[in-house]
Computed example of a mutant assay.
Amino acid sequence: MDKLKKGLSKTRENTIGKIEALVKSSKKLDDDFWEELEEILIQADVGVNTTIELVDNIKQAAKKQKMHDSSEVLELIKDEVRKLLEYNNVPLNIPERELAVILVVGVNGAGKTTSIAKLAYRFHEEGKKVLLGAADTFRAAAIDQLNIWADRVGVELIKHQEGSDPGAVVFDAIHAAKARHADILIIDTAGRLQNKANLMKEISKIKNIIQREIPEAPHEVLLVLDATTGQNAISQAKIFEEATGVTGLILSKLDGTAKGGIILAVEKELKIPVKLVGIGEGLEDLRDFSPQIFTEALFAQNGGD
């Protein structure tokens, strides 16, 4: 909780701090109050549609409870934020008695490789045997970076040369994982968006290979979104969702933005559950997303320092 509070400190100062100041400076719940609340939320990257719905819900709840004093409304805002986030509270789908295959997608620079490393570290610390597959063969740097992380975490990486067929890497990685009786295989993929048709074709081929070898897999297709890119993350997500059938989101670099409201926009507009959040640079700083804990940390009175 303290780590999450610290990670959300920029967002808390920028958003909750402004809401608290608004509550203190306004005496009553009039049109000016609601308009200013909308403005604060939109500036925090909550998104226009989500903001309008959120404020409308808060208004209705305040009316129902016969509230007139703005000082009473803060707890209502907190409740409505939590309710919105609970919409898609879904844990990671990790089967217990078979090889779990996790496909990780996202644009280059979103924190995809480090998120894979953090995920591998987490499973490794839980005592699971983890393998990584370097199917982003488009860039030599991607393979090298994943290799460094694999060594650091203490897991095996299955890789080919730059320019190799990603499908061949995936095929080899699945067979290696089966031969070594691995519990979890995490596969990195290319993150270029310049040509959507190529992206769709490549991911589709990878998924077909996985499903041919393990019919129920991939068990998760996790899209890594950089929280600092704000509303751009939404448009990226829509392209990947169309191309890959995303099952969950990893929101990276949440500690690096003052606009953490993007998490509300993502939940509402994409209807894809946020499953993990990145709240720091350490290997242990990828956490399961809990709407309750996130809301408590966001509205906490201090930064947890």
Rank of each mutant, 00 (worst) to 15 (best):
A265Q: 06
D226I: 07
I250C: 04
K207A: 10
A177V: 10
N232S: 12
R192K: 11
E213A: 13
P291T: 08
V221I: 14
I174C: 05
T247R: 03
I210F: 10
A176L: 09
I279G: 00
P273V: 12
A190Y: 03
E162P: 07
V170A: 03
A182T: 05
V274D: 03
V155P: 00
A197T: 15
D165W: 12
I187F: 10
I210T: 06
E241T: 15
S252F: 01
Q211E: 15
D288V: 12
Q231T: 09
A177Y: 01
N147D: 15
A168V: 12
I186A: 03
I234Q: 04
A179Q: 10
R212T: 15
T229N: 07
T295W: 02
A237M: 10
A168T: 12
E241G: 13
A243R: 00
Q292P: 07
T228W: 06
K196W: 07
T229G: 04
S204M: 13
Q236A: 06
S164E: 08
D151R: 12
Q236K: 08
V221C: 05
I184C: 04
L222H: 03
I293F: 09
N208S: 15
D183F: 09
F294I: 08
D151K: 13
P273F: 06
H219Q: 10
E267F: 14
G280C: 05
L270M: 08
N198V: 14
L199P: 00
K159V: 14
I184S: 02
I279F: 00
K196P: 09
S252R: 03
G282N: 13
Q231E: 08
T295E: 07
V221T: 09
Q194R: 13
T228K: 03
I148H: 11
R287L: 15
L223Q: 01
D151C: 10
A177G: 01
K253D: 03
A258I: 05
P218F: 04
K178A: 12
E284T: 12
E202H: 06
G230F: 06
G154W: 09
V153E: 02
T189C: 07
V274Y: 00
E281A: 06
I214S: 03
G191L: 08
K201M: 14
L222D: 01
T189V: 08
L225P: 02
T229M: 10
A182E: 01
G167M: 12
A173T: 09
A258D: 01
